[in-house]
Structure formats: structure tokens, C-alpha cells
Design a protein around this nucleic acid. Structure first.
Lengths: 132, 132, 132, 132
DNA sequence: GTGGTCTAGACCACC
DNA sequence: GTGGTCTAGACCACG
């Protein structure tokens, strides 16, 4: 599991960690039952404060994506994959709707938005193919 | 010009004000040269601290959307309308692309996204017609 | 006496009036004893609030450049010309020194400043010859 | 980095702070990447309200001289030094020209101004050597 | 009346 | 600890 965080991009680091772990689970990069890197190890790899990693792991535990194996670390929970997949979809839907909602309230019409959507989609796909 | 702010929705009040004034200018609700409500008046209407309104107006002044008429109030600058319209479009495009970018990186395919887009768009339009 | 004020250039309007009247006196455009336009007339000509003109005249009275002739208006005082000439020079010296002082404290060396002075002087002379 | 502010000299405190930080950056007193004193620390040192310091830092952030490191403080941005050096020079040139412009319009001749310049320069240098 | 500045003190999220 | 936001209330200059 290879995570990458961008400090100071506006999104809290712990939040970036939470999302990326969820993505990794949803994509099957880490399978239920599998042990993930320790707080210390992860903090070292990402050059991040251990407190920050701890916070992310705690939140993932609250959301039942991870559970702790006493003395052995944190492991992906059973059922986490299904949960992450549907979470991802719902979160995305909410964010899309929030953006569109503001756009509509801001006076843009749906057809105009569809154009912008297709353009943005093309950019996003391309940048996904040629990661910076 | 009738603004509405939602406290505690995560977006700072002054930022909400900035956006809404820009939208009002973009939509022509207030025309260049026109004087907008005073800091105190706006603060009273929105039940918000005058300093918060002041901060929003100050930022709009920095962005050359407003300018102050000494002793008479703040007025919409010439050229502000064009600026606000293009700003709105660019901001929206960036936000759309950010969401889509993350979606693509998160493993969703374009057709799936198009579906979600249409659904979100329908919701947004409906909530725009029946404002909460 | 032809004055011109620029609203919203940062310098208070009443201050611009004070300076310009002093310049006019220093240059001999208006002579001691001569009556200057009334507050109302001046305010009308410059499209300015009469209170603002009043304030400027009051200050000029305090500085003994003008004095009021009961029922006939304000007139230039005897000795005002000499005073205005020397005031102008002293004010200018102070401002020059303030700028240079900050420049020195800001780390620029005298030779560098001399260059900038000559360049600025050339610009100022040129813009004085071809008034905008 | 040792700043000093003069309350009630007409220039807003936050503006004095902005200028002095820029000077410090231009002079290399603080290098890009370096973390500057926190809002609270600076406020304590200068016996000024933290909000006032905050406002100055915010403006410096808008001008891309500083950027915030979440939870760690404010740091000087890369490229800030070059920017500050050229800003300083341009600002000074503008102010010099403004003063000279008014002097010319006020009827003083260039040679007279050169004399005044040299005298003011001497004073400024001396006061720079024996700081009050 | 207007905008502009400043103080005092509070709460929050983040590291 | 840090920066960021907000409130409350004050004073000033300007028109």
C-alpha cells in the first residue's frame, strides 16, 4: 500500500490518509484481514507527525474499516471492502451535488454545466493517465 | 441585493459573503457604479458582526470588485461584472475537475460518473426550485 | 483660481483643497486682499460637499492664510504669500526626508537613491509639461 | 528578526508590520523556507493585539511573501526575496516621483529640488547612523 | 451617516 | 503549540 500525502493543499493530512486507506481497501490493494503498516512506520514513510497518523487510524477504526489486533497492529476488517466501495460512491455523489447545487444557485444552466462536466472529465482522465 | 448566509456549514461567513456578492454582480443584481449596503446595514440584516462584513468587503476591494467612496459607502467597480462572470466559471470548472480527478484516481469509470452527474444535476435543479 | 480635486486618490479632499489654495497663493495666482470664491460656489464648481470646502477654509483660516470679511467672504491675508512659499518648501523637505529616511532604513545606499531621484525627476518634469 | 512599530504615526500598525517583514525578507534577515515568529509571539514582543499581527501576516500571505504551514507556523515563501527587493524599489520610485511631481506642479525648479534632495539625504543617512 | 483600524477575548481545527 | 475565524465594542477620519 503506497500512500502519498500533500501537505498544505488545504485538505487536512489525517483526512488525506483516511481517504487513501479507504481507496486502497475499495480497490482491493489491501484485503480484509491484512495488517497495515504501524503508526510509527507509516509516519516515518510519509514524513508526517505520528499523532496525525494515529488520528487517521482512530477514525478508520470508528468507521469500522480497521480494527486493532492487540500487540500486532491494525488490520482491515471484514466487510470493509463493501463499505468502502459504497462510501466512496456516496461521498462522491454528495460532493458532485454540492458543486452543482452551488452552480445552479449561482445562475448557470444545466446544459452549460454538462459542457463543463465533459471538459473537466476529459482533463481528469488525461491527468490520471499521465500522473504528474 | 438579498444575501443569505449559513453559519457553521464549514465555509467561513466572510467567504460566503464574498461569493454571494460576486454572484450578485455576475447576475447583474447590482450594477457597476451602484452603491451596496453599508457594512453596518449588511451586518444588521444578516445578524452578523460588522467586522465580518468588513472583512468580506475588504477582500472584494482587493479583488477589484468593489471600491470605497470615502464617507459614502462601497460601490461596484467598472469591469467587475465581466470579472465576476469569468471568475465564477473558472472556479466552478476547477472544483468540478477536482472532484472528477479524485473520482478517477479512486477508480470510478467515466460512464459511471456521467450517471452520477445527471442524478446530482437533477437533485440540484430540484432543490434550486424548492429552496429550503 | 482654478482648482482640481481627485476624489478617492487617498488624500482627503479637504486636504487637497488646502494644498491647492496654498499653492495658488504661493504662485501669486491670488493676491493678498483678494476675495476667494464662497464655500457654496467652490463646492458647486468642484461637485463636492460644502462641508468639505468649509473644513478646508477653516483650516486655512487657522493657518492665517485666509481671514473672513464679515458678510463678504474669505480673503487672502497679508503675509500669506511669504508664509505659503516657505511652508511649501518646508513641507516638501519633510516629505523628501521621510521617503529617503525609510529608503535608507530599508537598506538602499545613497548612490542608488541619487539614480532613482534623477529618474523620478525626469518623469515628474515631463508629466508637468504634458499635463494629463 | 527584530521589528519596531510606532503607534499613532499615521501609518496603520498592520501596514508597518507588512513593510518591515518585506524589508527583512529583502535584506535576507529571514531566508525563504524559514519560519517566522508566530502570531502570538510577535504580538507579545510588540505589545500589540494578535489580531493586528494576524492581519499583517494574512496580507503577506495574499502577496505570496509568506505561506502557512498547518499547525507549525508561517514561513517565508520561495521567490519572496526577489519579489520583495523589486517591490521595495518600485514602491520607493513611485513615492519619490509623487513627491517630485507635486513639487514641480507647485512651482519649484529641478535645481532647487536637487539641493533639497542632497540635504534630506544627508539628514536621513545621519539619522540612520544614530537611530533614535 | 460612512469606511478603517484596533483591542480584547473566545472557540476551532490541525500538528 | 500553531493559524483561522468570529464576536463585541471602541475610536477615528471623512463627507
Amino acid at each position: 500500500m503506497q500512500l502519498s500525502i500533500e501537505p498544505n493543499n488545504g485538505i487536512p493530512i489525517y483526512e488525506q490518509l483516511v481517504r487513501q486507506v479507504k481507496y486502497a481497501v475499495a480497490e482491493g490493494v489491501v484485503a480484509p484481514g491484512q495488517v497495515i503498516p504501524s503508526v510509527r512506520e507509516m509516519a516515518r514513510q510519509l514524513a508526517v507527525n505520528p499523532n496525525t497518523v494515529q488520528r487517521a487510524y482512530l477514525q478508520l477504526q470508528d468507521e469500522e474499516v480497521l480494527h486493532s489486533l492487540r500487540g500486532r497492529g491494525m488490520a482491515v476488517s471484514t466487510g470493509a471492502k463493501r463499505k468502502c466501495v459504497s462510501d466512496r460512491q456516496q461521498l462522491l455523489a454528495e460532493r458532485l451535488e454540492a458543486v452543482l447545487d452551488e452552480a445552479i444557485r449561482g445562475g448557470l444552466d444545466p446544459d452549460r454545466l454538462r459542457d463543463m462536466f465533459e471538459k473537466a472529465l476529459k482533463n481528469a482522465v488525461r491527468s490520471g493517465e499521465n500522473p504528474t
